[in-house]
């Protein structure tokens, strides 16, 4: 038996802790517990109201089995069409604008001033939620789908340009250099050296964004920016759960269909 072994035998063994510094470990643990206690204690729950609500909850779930598409058929049809219209228009415009901005936000192909401006636009778009943008745009442009369309276009730019720029920054340099070595102009270089490399991913991301835009378009109506949200809001306000269920089922079905289609398209381009 070796000496090293005899040091271990008969002694208890413990798994080495994930965080090695003991004070940090305790600080995090105690901090988490204190926060949880304070946080949970500060949430006021009216259990009586919740208990009463259970019936309504059950009624809502039951209404998924008997959705009412007919009573407000016109409103639903109008709302869904408007949502789809906003989705299509804003996706097209958003994607078209985000391509130049994405190119400008890629450090390896854009000069510094352009890079800073494009990154600024992206940061602004990403840090403002759709719904807040929609509120401001409704205040400026008035109620209606135009505000929703602009909101979604703006959000698309932030999302797509950022991912596109990251994609360009991580592309294979040698291919792009080979095209540049042929003496190509800048647009030719982008067309032959960069575009083929990022195109499949751009298509995949664009389709994904269409999916997100549709989901978001469903809530813009809450603040008057067009789409199905207004009808949905009314349905909840009047406790018309069967109509609300019908709308939610339509939304879920469209999202599932979009995911299915995007799966097929992404498989084809890659």
């Amino acid at each position: 038996m070796s000496d090293a072994l005899s040091l271990h035998l008969g002694k208890p063994w413990k798994k080495p802790p994930f965080i090695k510094r003991a004070w940090l470990r305790w600080l995090i643990a105690v901090g988490a517990i204190v926060y949880l206690v304070l946080g949970i204690a500060s949430v006021e729950v009216n259990w009586h109201r919740v208990y009463e609500g259970l019936d309504r909850g059950a009624a809502f779930i039951a209404s998924f089995l008997t959705p009412d598409f007919l009573t407000r058929a016109t409103d639903i049809r109008e709302g869904i069409t408007e949502s789809i219209v906003m989705t299509v228009a804003s996706s097209v415009v958003g994607i078209l604008i985000s391509i130049p901005i994405g190119l400008g936000a890629a450090r390896n192909i854009a000069p510094l001033p352009v890079y800073m401006i494009c990154r600024g636009i992206i940061a602004l778009s990403r840090s403002l939620q759709e719904i807040i943008v929609a509120i401001l745009l409704v205040a400026i442009f008035g109620f209606g789908p135009l505000a929703g369309f602009l909101t979604l276009s703006f959000a698309t730019i932030g999302f797509l340009s950022k991912l596109l720029a990251e994609n360009i920054e991580s592309m294979d340099r040698s291919q792009a250099e080979a095209i540049r070595a042929t003496g190509s102009s800048w647009p030719q270089w982008i067309n032959y050296g960069v575009q083929p490399q990022v195109m499949p991913r751009l298509i995949g991301l664009s389709i994904y964004r269409v999916d997100i835009n549709f989901r978001e378009s469903a809530i813009l109506g809450l603040v008057g920016a067009g789409g199905i949200g207004a009808t949905l809001n009314t349905a909840f306000d009047r406790y018309e759960f069967d109509t609300a269920a019908a709308i939610l089922i339509i939304i879920i079905a469209i999202v599932m269909a979009l995911e299915y289609v995007s799966g097929i398209i992404r498989a084809r381009v890659q």
């Binding site: 949430v43 006021e44 009216n46 109201r49 919740v50 259970l54 309504r56 809502f60 909840f236």
Partner: peptide
């Protein structure tokens, strides 16, 4: 909100 009322919960 329709089910359990408005609020943080």
């Amino acid at each position: 909100i329709a089910i359990i009322g408005p609020g943080v919960f």
